[in-house]
Nucleic acid binder design. Structure first.
Length: 113
DNA sequence: CGACTGACGCCGA
DNA sequence: CTCGGCGCCAGTC
C-alpha cells in the first residue's frame, strides 16, 4: 500500500498551526504530491485517531468545508475551528485571513523531507 | 482489465 | 454565483 504517501500527508497536516487553516491542494503540494488533492481527502479519512491529525483545519480551495452544511462532520469541524478562533460563516472560512502561510524554516523543522 | 467513485481543483460558459 | 467538463489517482466491484 502507498502508506508512505499517507504518512507524509498526515505529517504535513499536523504542521498546520492552531488558528490557521489549509486546503487539500495546498497540503498535497507541500507533501510533494502536486495535483493529488483527492488523495489528501482519502488520507484524512484513513487517518488513525491516535495520530491526532487536525483534519478540520483542511478545507477546499474555496474555503468551503469538505462536507455539506448541516452534516455531523460539518458541525464538528465548525465547532473545533471556532474554538481556535477561526471565524466561520455559512459553512466557509475566509482564506485571505486564515489560510496558513508556511515559511521555509517551519517546513524544514516540522516536516524534515 | 474496464467502469465507477470520491473529505478535490481549475477553467470556461 | 452556478453548472458542466476534464484531469487526477487509489480503491472497489
Amino acid at each position: 500500500m502507498s502508506e508512505q504517501k499517507y504518512q507524509r500527508i498526515w505529517k504535513t497536516v499536523k504542521a498546520i498551526p492552531v488558528g490557521k487553516v489549509s486546503t487539500y491542494g495546498q497540503i498535497a503540494d507541500l507533501a510533494g504530491l502536486p495535483g493529488r488533492a483527492r488523495l489528501v481527502g482519502k488520507a484524512m479519512g484513513y487517518a488513525p485517531d491516535d495520530l491526532q491529525v487536525p483534519w478540520y483545519r483542511v478545507m477546499r480551495s474555496t474555503g468551503q468545508f469538505a462536507f455539506a452544511a448541516g452534516t455531523d462532520l460539518a458541525k464538528k469541524q465548525k465547532g473545533l475551528l471556532q474554538e481556535e478562533g477561526v471565524v466561520v460563516h455559512n459553512n466557509r472560512v475566509k482564506l485571505s485571513e486564515f489560510q496558513w502561510q508556511p515559511d521555509l524554516a517551519e517546513l524544514l523543522f516540522k516536516l524534515e523531507f
